[in-house]
């Protein structure tokens, strides 16, 4: 009991100290008085919770992120299986994929906004593009790393190519896909916020932009706190989903020592 009490107390103490420091800095009018007090941000959080606009912005953000993630998951797995199943295609696309991989979607944001305008569709498309490549590449790796013995065994049992794909290749590629989806889910949320903040798409990113441009600093901080909680929930949710969906795979089973 003592051991679990100490970390808890220290954690509470750490948060309290951070809040005190924040309050002191805003009381001392650091940064020209642009730092709002803890109280005003808390009041604003309460006001946000009572505002239907905020909830619809939140719903839009979550909806766009999940929709884009689902689309890129579907598209990424299909493309990944196609690319991974044919050796020449894998080699032909590798250099292009490796080049594009480290380029974040924010780079093409101006082009996407130009074509689609500041709409939800634009945000959705940006999320789709941003999450697509990692999922494709992981799926390709997963398909490629299928145990050749299992594949040959299936073939000698007379399985058809489609059957081999569904029963051998896909299950063994699943952990790779799961990892890609888990990494992509927080990214989808981030891209949705970026699209709103910089491209004018709907949702919390846009609220953030309006609060900053209008000088409404308590709301700005309240929104960032909401985004922090939302980001945590996304990370937590995908980790739970991954464990639930992939519990049968050997790399997720509890190891018995």
């Amino acid at each position: 009991m003592r051991t679990s009490f100490k970390p808890l107390a220290a954690g509470v103490g750490g948060v309290a100290a951070a809040l005190l420091l924040w309050q002191a800095a805003s009381g001392a009018r650091a940064a020209g008085g642009s730092l709002p007090s803890v109280g005003s941000v808390a009041t604003d959080l309460g006001a946000l919770a009572g505002s239907p606009d905020f909830w619809s912005a939140l719903a839009q953000t979550v909806g766009i992120a999940l929709l884009g993630l689902a689309a890129s998951g579907l598209g990424g797995i299909v493309v990944g299986i196609l690319v991974g199943s044919f050796e020449p295609v894998r080699y032909a696309t590798r250099a292009a994929l490796e080049f594009l991989k480290p380029i974040p979607p924010i780079v093409i944001l101006p082009l996407v906004v130009l074509i689609l305008g500041p709409t939800g569709q634009m945000s959705w498309f940006l999320v789709f593009l941003g999450c697509l490549l990692p999922i494709v590449m992981q799926t390709v790796d997963g398909v490629h790393s299928t145990d050749p013995v299992a594949r040959d065994t299936a073939r000698s049992y007379g399985m058809k190519p489609v059957e081999i794909l569904v029963r051998i290749v896909l299950p063994s590629a699943m952990p790779y896909i799961g990892t890609a989806m888990r990494v992509s889910a927080p990214a989808a949320l981030i891209i949705t916020v970026v699209a709103g903040l910089l491209g004018g798409g709907p949702g919390l990113g846009q609220s953030l932009y309006l609060a900053q441009a209008g000088g409404d600093y308590p709301t700005l901080y309240a929104l960032v706190i909401v985004l922090g909680i939302l980001g945590l929930l996304f990370q937590l949710g995908t980790r739970v989903a991954e464990r639930r969906l992939l519990h049968w795979h050997e790399s997720y089973r509890e190891v018995a020592h």
Partner: peptide, 28 residues
């Protein structure tokens, strides 16, 4: 003790989309 004290804060802060910090720094 340091780890216990900063753990909750760090977990919260890393949930924030990094780009959302930019408006805050602009305001400051």
């Amino acid at each position: 003790p340091v780890r216990w004290a900063v753990d909750p804060l760090i977990h919260f802060l890393r949930g924030i989309p990094p780009v959302a910090l930019v408006p805050i720094f602009i305001s400051l």
